[in-house]
Amino acid sequence: MSIPEPTWVVTAVLADDLLALNRAMSIVRRRNLPVTSLALGPAARAGQLRLTVVLTADQAAVVRMANQFRKMVDVIEVSLAREEECLGREHALVRVRVTPTTLAALLDVLALYQATVLEECPTDLIVEATGSGPFMTSLLRALESFEVLEVSRGGVLAVSRSPVPVAPAATRPGGSLSRPARAIPA
């Protein structure tokens, strides 16, 4: 039985420029790595974007990718972590059908998932929820019986819990430390 490949969270801070984003994503695209989530938003500093990519790959491939990511023009910072070493959250806006008879049950479900009602329309509610990937999937499944009209789900946003340096994928056993001074945490 083969061991499943780990899921990684790659976070990059880029110059606020579509070309920088294009260059960064082409590094991922060229390898055809299975990307399950992609999120982009402003970074802590003005003029910079933060890109969060979740993908599944073996460690050697993902470290190689991150190293090439780091040397690109207008890529300012790259970090790499296993999914379980990150705190990740998704955000969703859901429009769900409501009738006088289903309202109470719907509000119970929303309370259970700590979802907030943002707007009430005559025939539906717009609700907002935040949680881990499985949590969001579970919420959406719970809402199915009420008829979900529209879902807008953002990609995973993540921060690392405590970055642990990792040696490059291909360090031969018995050799000494062999990585550049700025290690990629994993």
Binding site: R64, K71, G174, S176, S178, P180, A181
Partner: peptide, 23 residues
């Protein structure tokens, strides 16, 4: 054991494992 001297850190360990890298 490979001692790899390169200007580009992304080359280190890209194709073969190295024992020592000097970037």
């Amino acid at each position: 054991k490979i001692i790899h001297i390169d200007l580009d850190p992304s080359e280190i360990g890209k194709n073969i494992p190295v024992a020592v890298a000097l970037v």
